[in-house]
Design a protein around this nucleic acid. Structure first.
Lengths: 352, 352
DNA sequence: TCTCCATATTGAATCGATTCAACGATTGGG
DNA sequence: CCCAATCGTTGAATCGATTCAATATGGAGA
């Protein structure tokens, strides 16, 4: 007690019972006689015992009851990026329901990342935005805890992944617009990892580092070809998923002689920036230009007009990811979930 | 090793060194001879040892290197509410810099809350939105870890709190509008905890449960009185900080014979909803109606027009809160930080 | 050759709890 | 009145690492 810190053993001794009994008083009250229980609790209160310390308990139990969500982006990413937020909201809901804690893991530099991954007190990891983050996967694997990657499209099939069918989703988006009658398209791509921002040569884009981007682009092209539209005739502009690069892309696009009537954006974030750019320039959406996004983040529904987009089954993704970690039942291979088209106000037939 | 789990002790035995040395190989490599170090590392690799397990390490070390952020709201709150997000972003940045982890703590019901608070593996807690959450404070205090409450205005001075000067901030907001020439005001209040939503009698509002709301209201009134405006003449509408209740309040306000020319919103969220309502009804902001918010969330800057608001020093709040927990140097009493007026496009002199 | 010192390694204690086989006390039945 | 079953309690082992006083080793200086 001189330690300033009261341990279970102190309480046990003071109450004149064994440590085992004291432990039972807190962990399995029903097994100890009421009289003794009362006495121990009274002693505990008297001594100012704060209850069993998790550090000891967990060492014994082996499980922490928390999952780590890791990303190569800075920690703030979890609270700023719409997709990450939407996903975290769902994950949070699942965790809430199962009484599981969430620990956020990230780092500014590679060295700290390693340390943070290794020192996180969790039962497993969910990895976000893992493209180009081979190192994150590698570090996590070394930790030898269950983990599952989200939105990874890498070739390494030894990594458990829950992904979505980017190709089919993108095709769905393009087909939707082509069905409406559009023939002049432009693609606003996501390219975060060093690919040149700006107009991209057809061949180059297909070699994009990020398989998410690549698949979506392939999907767009595949669907457009069904309508006889040459891939080479569809300009693809890389963006950094931020306002300035989207603005730059649109500046270039609408300086062309025959600007597009339909914009295929690889993320809702890009699509929303694009809609703002268009509104500021006096273009009507969907009257002059139709815009379709990807992800279906909450903002897509509240924007005006509402953004037509491809919805990811975030609920399902979150549920599967969390239960995979908690249940230890990692999917054998890569799981791919289906996406759906959500039609809102941002798409319509082109001005005839 | 039959356990399927390799421990440090196993590695030590296999490498033919003492456990102490093996521990040093990982924790303080410089202290062990290179030759031995190599051998131990090789053995570790061979056995598939994943590195020192945090559970053991932390038991010994006593500190977890993570802080818990707790709230009575559901977990999703951290990712949805603009103020919470803005704050979390700052906290995340501070934690990033110091290599500290973040654990989110919340719960659907009181019972789970207790369990989650008690079982969170953290060195201390930051409590969010603690008004009305006496139970959260009580639970946290029982845990006997350092904690600090944010945005609490309760009377209990034994609770360490970092707060802001709501009264001065509100006064600043009202004075700003009055200086511009406005004389017809309305207040959109935050009242989440059971206070009647809708028009509020003057006396009743002052008795609001939430001291944040109360102080802001007091501040508004105090400043307006300096300009000879009767508190009783300023309608106060409670809202639930969501769109529908804000819409309802505005419906009522603008059905009055002489609607306000200036709106004092107790949060940016409310203010932004109000601006959307006004835009939808054809009112020009700031031409017809001026709007001022409170908090200065990121959205305030990107809205159009930009929202004039009272900025909380979130950086400072986050920095102090985190270092208070980590350094164990809790402020003696309640700390109150100053706020500043950020003038953007949503306020202007009234139409003459 | 012997002493002294610096450096590397060992072994045991420790952190704070849980668990479980074994033991002691009651109670009911025969 | 004895035996068995029941229930509560004990004591020691365990979880996986870190730490530190004590010891072993090797080299330099006298």
């Amino acid at each position: 007690m001189a330690k300033g810190h009261v341990r279970l053993a102190d309480v046990a001794k003071a109450a004149g019972v064994s440590q085992g009994t004291a432990s039972n008083v807190f962990g399995r009250p029903e097994v100890v006689r009421e009289e003794v229980r009362e006495r121990v609790l009274a002693t505990a209160r008297e001594l100012g015992y704060a209850g069993p310390d998790m550090k000891g308990r967990l060492l014994r139990a082996g499980r922490v009851n928390a999952i780590g969500v890791a990303s190569v982006e800075p920690l703030a990413y979890f609270f700023e990026d719409p997709w990450a937020r939407a996903l975290m909201t769902k994950i949070a809901a699942v965790c809430d329901a199962t009484g599981t804690g969430i620990a956020l893991v990230s780092a500014q530099n590679q060295q700290k990342l390693a340390w943070n991954i290794n020192s996180a007190l969790v039962d497993g990891f969910i990895l976000l935005c893992v493209e180009g983050g081979e190192r994150l996967v590698e570090l996590t694997r070394r930790r030898q805890l269950p983990f599952i990657a989200l939105a990874l499209g890498g070739a390494d099939t030894s990594i458990p992944v829950i992904g979505i069918d980017n190709l089919a989703g993108a095709a769905m988006a393009a087909r939707h617009l082509a069905d409406l009658g559009h023939r002049r398209f432009a693609v606003l791509a996501i390219d975060q990892f060093g690919d040149p921002v700006g107009a991209t040569a057809p061949g180059q884009a297909a070699r994009s580092l990020k398989s998410t981007s690549r698949d979506r682009l392939l999907g767009y092209r595949q669907a457009l070809e069904e309508f006889g539209i040459e891939p080479a005739s569809v300009p693809v502009h890389g963006t950094r998923n931020d306002r300035s690069s989207v603005d730059a892309a649109l500046d270039a696009l609408f300086a062309m002689p025959a600007p597009p009537t339909a914009i295929l954006a690889m993320s809702d974030r890009i699509a929303l920036f694009a809609m703002q750019w268009l509104a500021a320039r006096g273009f009507k959406v969907p009257g002059d230009v139709s815009v379709i996004g990807f992800d279906d983040v909450p903002e897509a529904a509240t924007a005006s007009p509402g953004l037509t987009t491809i919805a990811q089954p975030l609920d399902e993704i979150a549920r599967r990811a969390v239960s995979a970690i908690l249940g230890g039942a990692l999917p054998d291979a890569q799981e791919t979930l289906d996406v759906t088209l959500v039609s809102r106000g941002s798409t319509a037939p082109p001005r005839s």
